[in-house]
Design a binder for these strands. Structure first.
Length: 572
RNA sequence: GCGCCUGUAGUGAAGGGGUUAUCACAAGAGGUUUCCAACCUCUUGUCCCGGGUUCAAAUCCCGGCGGGCGCACCA
């Protein structure tokens, strides 16, 4: 079997068996949009369920769900409207397109803040040449919008909006509700799974770069003075870590999460903790641990909102692909939303262990004197007096207002106040650690790593060695013949197991028994239950294990108990 | 967006200006004491879309859409 075509065989199988296939195909298809078919949708649901369970099982993280349509103002505050509207310049001689701000790199302190016309004039005044063909003629810079715009309101005059490029903003919007839910105590987190939208220039590589995709994001809100972290010592695997090439550490380092955190390779303990938990999740759903690595972003590739970011990359048919990003978003989002919205609900209270005593000495304006004397300027003068930090040693002294007005302040106009207060705590903007998962990319790699071809002949025998956590059906029930009562017995069993919560069975009576095993193996059903002649005599069935084809015989009642308890494995 | 390659049943392929487009596997019905893709009979189903050239286009040409790779892009 030529290994170079494994990718083709895997994608063909995925289409044929209804796992993942191009969308809208009878209308020619649309690049970057895919469907999950009947088998794929079940796998996807189980991956997402496993993800939600993984993060919410500690009690400090809850699930939320917010709209995909997002008002423009939210995305202006988050920085996406600015960042997602990069100006692009096209070379008139070879039609190559470049980001305008990259072309004028070094010619301006902050090229990414410039408008189209400023970029154009910078390009022409510096005679920037095309990196591709050395031509010097450029078309006007045009904005490239990577978000899908829409309008809220069916008639004219609606509000401008975009399809969300990430689910994170919805969780920031819900911060006040989360803060109340968690009894106003950090740390806590929220997860959200759902669709995100990016109008990619050129979607590529099957389901790797999509225009509409499934994401799963976790926002963990912490006090920046604290770095909450679980027991890293429980993760003893050595992990491949590739630190920022612009930093002190070079090349690939193999280390445990605990060591990496202690040595300062992973600076933030909470980031290290989520990296470990991410590794734990990925291996649990069937990603090969040898094909996982973490790569730190260089400062230059960091998203606009992040101060540190580690990508989790997975090795598959498309080489190393970024599947999870674990970013320290600091207070960027909450602070920016506070600024843009005027809300004061995006903060958290930090209680001091011991109240701080503060002594405040200041001047208090005597308005009965100041008022009649300064009339309309009295208010401004009173404020200025209260805000004086250095109290002048003698009277009279002069205060200069913003407009240049000079007021002479005499002893009678003020009184000296000495105040002693206990401060019990302070308000601050929480920081956010965000693990963001690309669900489609993860599903791809789960399938890639499970796709085992080990046929002896040319044709190849395919087994999808999916973990029970993500398999599309838990078991396949196969009547050896659909007659003599075997079919009825099988359907009875099917109905019985189908009432068990979380269990989905398949029933298949067409074709030879070998063919039916093969069909079940190909989509990763872990157990095949065969109803045969003996079943009719003594009520026993055979249970076949997908990964080694071993079979045991057991009474159907006993089997159903094992299905219920998820202990089929113990039969082997 | 650009360049090169490419598009034939569900999947993989063959063919190719001329009657009804070929093969394998898959799928459906029936048969067969049928436990690892067995066999027999029958059946369903295909030239990406649009325009052009031509007496005649699935085939040649142009455009679009989709796919692969490279460049660019991937906040």
């Amino acid at each position: 079997m030529p290994e170079s075509r494994r990718l083709d065989r895997l994608t063909s199988m995925m289409r044929r068996r209804g796992i993942v296939l191009p969308s809208f195909e009878i209308y020619g298809g649309v690049a970057g949009l895919v469907d999950y078919g009947p088998v794929g949708a079940r796998i996807k649901r189980k991956v997402i369920q496993a993800w939600i369970d993984h993060w919410t099982s500690n009690g400090d993280i809850v699930e939320v769900d917010s709209p995909t349509i997002t008002p423009k103002a939210v995305l202006v505050a988050s920085g996406h409207v600015g960042e997602f509207n990069d100006q692009m310049s096209e070379c008139l001689s070879c039609n190559a397109i470049f980001r305008s701000d990259h072309l004028v790199e070094g010619m301006h302190p902050s090229p990414d803040t410039l408008e189209g016309e400023e970029l154009d004039s910078l390009i022409s005044s510096n005679s920037v040449t095309c990196p591709n063909c050395q031509g010097g003629e450029w078309a006007k810079a045009r904005p490239m919008n990577l978000m899908f715009p829409t309008t809220i309101g069916a008639m004219g005059g609606g509000r401008e909006a975009y399809m969300r490029p990430e689910t994170a903003q919805g969780m920031f919007m819900l911060f006040p509700s989360l803060y109340r839910h968690f009894k106003q105590k950090l740390p806590f987190g929220a997860v959200q799974t759902g669709r995100g939208y990016r109008n990619e220039i050129s979607p590529r590589k099957g389901m790797i770069r999509l225009r509409e995709f499934n994401m799963a994001e976790l926002e963990y809100f912490i006090d920046p003075l604290d770095q909450p972290c679980g027991d890293l010592g429980q993760y003893t695997d050595k992990i491949s870590l590739i630190p920022d090439p612009e930093g002190e550490n070079q090349g690939e380092i193999r280390s445990t999460f605990s060591e990496a955190n202690q040595s300062g390779l992973i600076k933030h303990s909470t980031v290290a903790w989520f990296m470990a938990r991410t590794y734990d999740f990925l291996t649990k759903i069937g990603i090969d641990s040898e094909k996982i690595r973490f790569r730190q972003h260089a400062g230059s590739e960091m998203a606009h909102y992040a101060s540190d970011c580690w990508d989790c990359e997975i090795l598959g048919e498309y080489d190393w692909i970024e599947c999870v990003g674990i970013a320290n978003r600091t207070c960027h989002d909450l602070e920016s939303h506070e600024l843009h919205s005027g809300s004061n609900l995006l903060r958290s209270w930090r209680q001091f262990v011991t109240p701080k005593k503060i002594f405040k000495e200041g001047l208090s304006p005597n308005s009965s004197v100041i008022g009649p004397l300064f009339k309309q300027r009295a208010g401004a003068i009173s404020t200025a007096i209260s805000e004086l930090v250095d109290i002048p040693g003698s009277f009279p002294f002069t205060i200069v207002l913003d407009g240049g007005f000079e007021a002479e302040i005499t002893k009678e106009m003020v009184s000296l106040v000495k105040e002693e207060r206990n401060i019990h705590g302070e308000w601050f903007t929480p920081h956010v650690i965000e693990p963001a998962f690309g669900i489609d990319r993860i599903i791809w790699h789960v399938l890639d790593h499970s796709f085992i071809e080990d046929g002896k002949d040319e044709e190849g025998y395919v087994t999808l060695r999916l973990s029970e956590t993500v398999c599309p059906y838990d078991l396949s029930i196969l009547p050896l013949f659909d007659k003599d009562g075997m079919g009825e017995f099988a359907r009875g069993m099917f109905n019985q197991v189908s009432t068990i919560r979380g269990i989905h069975a398949d029933i298949d009576s067409s074709g030879s028994i070998g063919k039916r095993y093969a069909r079940a193996d190909e989509i990763g059903v872990p157990w095949a239950i065969t109803v045969d002649h003996s079943t009719l005599d003594d009520g026993t069935v055979t249970v076949r294990k997908r990964d080694d084809q071993r079979q045991v015989r057991i009474s159907s009642e006993e089997l159903i108990v094992h299905v219920k308890n998820r202990t089929i494995e113990s039969l082997f």
